[in-house]
């Protein structure tokens, strides 16, 4: 749970909510044509560490008040992958900062596939 102290009390935001926002935004980024399953080589690591993986292609880690995200995507062949990935980061960063009220500390994007 991500907590936000306001003058009137505490607001709790579930990682699921953050994942849903991130997923929705990432899918709308131009050049993204799919959300990937999490990378096989780190599959399950989240659980081992007691972190809560959520939503397809999105991992949200909340630690000490920081929001970290990992996003697994498939991009369209013929796009500039680095730029598309960066656009994912920027857009998700902005959307979460705007709707949740705090900017994620880190957004890692794994480009797991490219599709023709």
């Amino acid at each position: 749970m991500w907590r936000m102290q306001t003058g009137l009390g505490t607001v709790f935001v579930s990682p699921d909510v953050i994942a849903r926002i991130a997923g929705t935004e990432a899918q709308e980024v131009f050049g993204i044509i799919g959300m990937a399953a999490r990378a096989p080589w780190i599959e399950g690591v989240g659980e081992w560490l007691g972190r809560e993986p959520t939503k397809r292609g999105i991992e949200v880690w909340i630690e000490e008040g920081n929001i970290d995200l990992t996003i697994y995507v498939v991009v369209r062949y013929g796009t500039k992958i680095s730029e598309v990935a960066r656009n994912v980061q920027e857009r998700v960063h902005y959307a979460i900062a705007r709707s949740v009220g705090v900017a994620p500390r880190k957004i890692d994007v794994y480009v797991n596939g490219v599709r023709l």
Binding site: Q27, E28, V29, F30, G31, I32, I33, G34, R76, G78
Partner: peptide
Amino acid sequence: RTAYQAVLKPV
């Protein structure tokens, strides 16, 4: 057409 193919959910 190419552009639309490059986005999962066009806005």
